[in-house]
Design a protein around this nucleic acid. Sequence first.
DNA 1: ACAAAAAATGTAAACGTTTTCATTAAGTTT
DNA 2: AAACTTAATGAAAACGTTTACATTTTTTGT
Lengths: 329, 329
Amino acid sequence: MANIQEVAKQAGVSIATVSRVLNNTSKVSEKTRFKVEKAIQELNYAPSMLGRNLRNSESRLLLVLIHTFSNPYYTEIITGIEDYAIENNYNILLCETDDNLQREDIFLNMVRNKLADGIISMNPTVHVDKLKELANSHSIVLCSDYYEDADIPYIAIDNTIAAYRAVKYLITMGNNKIGLINFNENLLYAKQRRIGFENALNEFQLPICDEWIHHSDGLTFQDGVEAMRRMLRSKNRPTAVFAISDTLAIGALKELHAQGIKVPQEMAIIGFDNIAFSSMTTPTLTTVSQPKYQMGYRSAKMVIDHIQGLTIENVIMDYELIIRESTLE
Amino acid sequence: MANIQEVAKQAGVSIATVSRVLNNTSKVSEKTRFKVEKAIQELNYAPSMLGRNLRNSESRLLLVLIHTFSNPYYTEIITGIEDYAIENNYNILLCETDDNLQREDIFLNMVRNKLADGIISMNPTVHVDKLKELANSHSIVLCSDYYEDADIPYIAIDNTIAAYRAVKYLITMGNNKIGLINFNENLLYAKQRRIGFENALNEFQLPICDEWIHHSDGLTFQDGVEAMRRMLRSKNRPTAVFAISDTLAIGALKELHAQGIKVPQEMAIIGFDNIAFSSMTTPTLTTVSQPKYQMGYRSAKMVIDHIQGLTIENVIMDYELIIRESTLE
DNA sequence: ACAAAAAATGTAAACGTTTTCATTAAGTTT
DNA sequence: AAACTTAATGAAAACGTTTACATTTTTTGT
């Protein structure tokens, strides 16, 4: 493939001029612009990003760290990220860490290696320390999960209040025995949602019953199935369950159906995230909706702004309670 | 950030030597290796991929073209692609074309611009011609959808036979009025699945009834809802429906439920793809399973092999009929 | 028609690597 | 200890751009 040199030769100009017409960076006369464009055509030339990136010392790539693709929660966020990125001539490098320390290491190093200009992490990374250190010298934004003390810019919703509101809703619907299906509470959002859950119960002086609180190992549908199965082993059952993610809630729903327990009559279920599936279940799932697309879009803006030297602020987004069949009576 | 020059200076060696210890590319004495490693440590040096990529004229990036993230069909494939890519020191650039011609153009150009070394396209691209032309000089592999005449390497299942088998199964379950929910038949896989559908009906001398054949505009759940809604407008209804994708099937299921039509007793439904959610619906969905992870993994191998100059063969994968509640009686 | 100002173009360095080829240092053989 | 082979290292070019600065060409005002 031709390079800028050959184009210059073919057009009878210097490479500087070719570069100028390529980037519209300073005036070049109509006549020479035409000559250059003709040469570009004839040689079927396309500028090399490798050369350009080296010269500009930027890659115009954004790393997006997620735990696993199979979690549908991410899809809309990623769409938002990509939209903003493309609009600003960036591309996104999607990285699935899958709890693999080694892989995470590779990914984090990419930004040191200049392969990526910044990171959007949606990954409750195991390497908090490494991430923190990296954030000193590079552009990193945390999206939807973050660390309280880490001083890395983030965008998220107020999980504590959102969970509180969800559980309060269950209570006002007449439930006074409320269970929780949570994920690993080392994750801040899991911890916060639990606190919100407890706040609501406390406010109404309802019992917080360990028998009704179960933790899953992951966030797949199957993990939800299993959590609910465990919960149903005890005779004393809650009349409503708050699941910390829609995937878990949907799995729970499935297990309830399998055991012939009617939702919402015998047990109400509320999820979190409003993934696309949640309106396709039977019954449809009540859930807390995060503005996922917007969170993605804005986190991309944040990281790009930061790359370009602007100072950025944390942002807290609004959530919304979406009431569907799984909690109606 | 330090560069190789400074490391060399600090270690008191030449940059060539530093490069050698970095890449283990030729022998360097224990003593100097140690010196260099010490210098790297002290300067907290990480080699720049920008320089390396330019010098090696490769980006070690793979473009993965998909239509939209929101289609859960892709997730497992992408995981497969990424696994093979990472194992071979490549990364993947995920590109959502979203039917946007301009955006697709940008993406296709990336490979000409050397930003990517190869493309895995899962996108029924509008620019077939451009893709074909690109394939002459670059590494492109089509995954799961392909073009018959285009002479671009592909990996897929035999959609015609798979659809035939699925519909035949419906017939042997006693259905003789069978409908189809299809997508845009310009896509080869859609066309092929329709042919398989017709082959089965013809074999058993069953009618192919236009009233029972509906096309959706997209592949979202909602598209499935709407297709089924249209189908239910006519009094004369099929007793079973083959939907060309699980998302459409799940939407159809939802609409049947909404209209109080019992599945599978009054109408059986079969989908295609075996997405994770298909075992979470009520009833669970019978479907044709493609080995999605493997298809991803192998398509990554194909494109990387091709990049490295090997000749590659098209591959046809096996499928599997997964029988669940939506077709049992 | 000439000087001065403005516009257009060219030259060359720089970005950070890898690698060929040349050179020096270290062993080996006689 | 000299001559030779092998191992280790260094010098410099190359990858393909962009851009500061220098130079040339064109335009303007007199």
